[in-house]
């Protein structure tokens, strides 16, 4: 039999099942350490400013990606922003329906050049619109661990 002939018996083919046994531990980094400490300890958002490019980065960065300057000017930024874009997610990672649809948005933080990807809450999907003003809802201080999930979600500013 030529090896290039098509497979006619299913037992000539076989899949081998396995996995790659790793997990990752990501430090939040030099800029991230201060950003997430502020979220955890004070429920506040901070950014870094590049004086040369006149940009405020949120999340804050150690360096300006445009001019490569070391960013050392920290500025407190509002916990409010606007919905730049959003999507309504109905399926989980395996394609199964979610019990409740989840609204995921990119939120531009007011007065900055950056923003956060996060959930929207306390709002129905059909009421969300681009440009909507939203504010961060933080978890109780005791529940915070220095993570982006210390923000429970963003909700419409009433």
């Amino acid at each position: 039999m030529s090896l290039l002939e098509r497979v006619v018996h299913i037992d000539q083919t076989k899949a081998w099942y396995g996995e790659i046994p790793i997990q990752s531990r990501y430090t939040v980094g030099i800029a991230g350490e201060r950003f997430f400490r502020e979220i955890k300890d004070n429920g506040r958002l901070w950014g870094t400013r590049c004086p040369h490019c006149d940009l405020i980065y949120v999340p804050p960065r150690l360096y300006c990606e445009r001019c490569f300057a070391h960013l050392e000017e920290w500025v407190e930024v509002p916990t409010t922003g606007r919905v730049h874009t959003f999507t309504v997610v109905h399926l989980d990672l395996d394609g199964n329906p979610l019990p409740e649809p989840r609204i995921v948005a990119f939120i531009q933080i007011d007065g900055t050049d950056g923003g956060l990807v996060h959930d929207l809450g306390e709002v129905d999907p059909e009421d969300v619109c681009i440009g909507m003003c939203v504010e961060a809802v933080f978890k109780d201080p005791a529940e915070r661990r220095g993570s982006i999930t210390d923000i429970r979600y963003f909700r419409p500013v009433r």
Binding site: Y17, I20, S24, F36
Partner: peptide, 12 residues
Amino acid sequence: LYETWKPVARYA
């Protein structure tokens, strides 16, 4: 501060 993540990396 750090985050951990175990990717779902199962293959056939």
